[in-house]
Design a protein around this nucleic acid. Structure first.
Lengths: 339, 339
DNA sequence: CTGTTAGCGCCTTCAT
DNA sequence: ATGAAGGCGCTAACAG
């Protein structure tokens, strides 16, 4: 199979068509100043040899770019981020650009390596869900004229465009809705506060309590779960307290899903009815949330649009550099389903 | 912001360090035959200027490759495929390669354009979930020495490595399990039979009935749903028949999720108990399947492993070309949860 | 140990 | 309307 063949060059096409490489080049870029019959011969040779212009060779010429966007996200497998990546890909494809996709696994070192690699491959710009609070490598990229767009999270000390969610406002509205529904013991399940969204959503949660003058019981605040299993364990611990929460505020889909799984598991033992379990407020909607055995409200938002917006910010900057840093905050939508 | 700066070249680094470009090049590729103190000066210049080797320039030299793998999948946002992409990315990253990711939206024309673009960017190989049955563009790639690995689906007339699932066997086992549980009216919900997996899973379904000598009622066979909403509508239609199925065989997660959503919606009207609704056999596990209000069994498999395997097939072929076409079939695991 | 030369594939510029 | 020369960034091969 695949006799390690050879990728034809413009020279070979030229030879094949009995013209000079320049004529091939001209034909391929519109055919200006090439006689129609010559063009035909060239295109025939192109088809026959299966020639494709070497974009890497083209991109090294002065004033030309690679048409590549580097996308570094923390977890490709998380549907939220993969949908985000789809949004970026779609917008990029509209301009003929492609995305180089890399996974950071929430690891700063890996992100560094990834960005460095992307720069070596001469990406035109970077879309990053920052995994650390260190801006150096991203600032470096910008200094070299490679614009960076931060998505979902924003890090201090980096003068780069960003698109994030209305995390704090959304969380506050969600938590307030629970308080208004009469809940006083509301458990918090979120990712670590060292992450932008974790910090902001927690702040919104706290603000809701503050505004109502209700104290927060830190015993039922669990921040730091990054996986469904960790969230599930945190939920288990909370539910077995002598005085468990009557509602759970989940700061992202990993935590909401973990909570649901644990509640569902306990329900299947049949000891207590669903009404004995806390209802849920989830920051992030997710597929099949509607199957929840306890009422679940969501603070919804659109990851695909987040990706599209990030890409547009980047593409705008590529077209017309300069101008102030743009910080976009996408709205979230609260959808209530309480008892 | 971002004074459209400049990406340093090897020449500038050389000048900065007071050496020739070759010395920089040598230093960067291990430092063989460069005095330690000179290396230091070079590395200092590299750091100061933020220099990154231009991989595109490197890759155009004879005998060198781009370190890029082109990945064309049908739907990035589908958790199944994004997890698959993660698997490919992981394996590729182990060898220092990156993935160019493109979405085909199940559209042959788009796939063609994508592959053509990938070839222009000099990818070393392609991992494709084929969206059509036309092998031409992929065969072209192979002819040029760009190996192709087909994942999840296989198309006729293409001499390329592939990794697929034990679709037929898995489907047959799942359907047989339903028959053994006493079901005789089993509805089928699947994607179109023109797609490899759709065809194979349906064949397995049919074979189960054939082996038991039980006829299939074509009125409750619905193939062609590609989205959750379409699956939901097909389910609705089936459930409102005078003689609805007592079990549903869903050939993929989109169809299973659509079925679940419809059943759940009808249940929430409270007219009939869950026990009146069909139980489900799903080819594909998915997050929160356990919340199903009706028993759900799954024919499980690991998309990440599918991606890893695809990548390994490709990387193997890059290392050592030649050898017969390899067709890998990954096993599936049946997990029963019936009434 | 270090530098010079040449050429990868392409296309801008300058002839013709 | 076509072709020849030159150079993009990089490094093998060949001096020294």
């Amino acid at each position: 199979m695949t006799a390690r063949a050879h990728r034809p060059t413009i020279k070979e096409v030229a030879q094949h068509a009995g013209v000079s490489p320049m004529t091939v080049s001209r034909t391929l870029s519109g055919g200006l100043n090439v006689k129609p019959d010559v063009q035909e011969r060239v295109l025939a040779a192109v088809a026959e040899l299966g020639y494709h212009r070497n974009e890497n060779a083209r991109s090294i010429r002065p004033g030309h770019s690679s048409g590549l966007i580097g996308v570094a996200i923390t977890n490709i497998a998380n549907p939220y981020y993969s949908t985000f990546a789809l949004g970026v890909e779609e917008e990029a494809a509209l301009t003929g650009r492609r995305i180089l996709l890399g996974n950071t696994s929430e690891d700063a070192v890996r992100e560094n390596a990834l960005v460095s690699d992307f720069l070596g491959r001469r990406v035109e710009g970077l879309v990053v869900v920052p995994a650390s609070n260190a801006p150096e490598h991203l600032a470096d990229a910008q200094r070299q004229g490679v614009p960076v767009v931060q998505a979902s999270r924003r890090i201090d000390g980096l003068d780069a465009d960003s698109v994030v969610l209305a995390d704090e406002e959304g969380a506050q509205r969600g938590a307030t809705a629970l308080l208004d529904a009469g809940h006083t013991r509301i458990g918090y399940l979120g990712n670590t506060l060292s992450i932008f969204t974790g910090q902001r959503r927690h702040a919104g949660f706290v603000r809701a309590f503050d505004e109502r003058g209700i104290p927060i019981d830190q015993d039922i605040v669990a921040a730091g779960q990054q996986t469904v299993d960790q969230a599930r364990e945190a939920t288990r611990a909370m539910l077995q307290m002598k005085n468990p929460p009557t509602a759970l505020f989940c700061a992202n889909n990993r935590n909401a899903i973990g909570a649901l799984k644990e509640i569902n598991r306990q329900l299947s033992t049949g000891v207590r009815p669903a009404s004995d379990y806390p209802e849920i407020m989830s920051f992030d909607d997710f597929e099949l949330a509607e199957l929840s055995p306890v009422p679940i409200s969501v603070i919804d938002h659109d990851p695909r649009e987040l990706g599209r917006t990030a890409a547009r910010l980047l593409l705008d900057r590529l077209d017309a550099d300069g101008g102030a840093v743009r910080e976009v905050e996408l709205p979230v939508e609260l959808r209530m389903h309480l008892r």
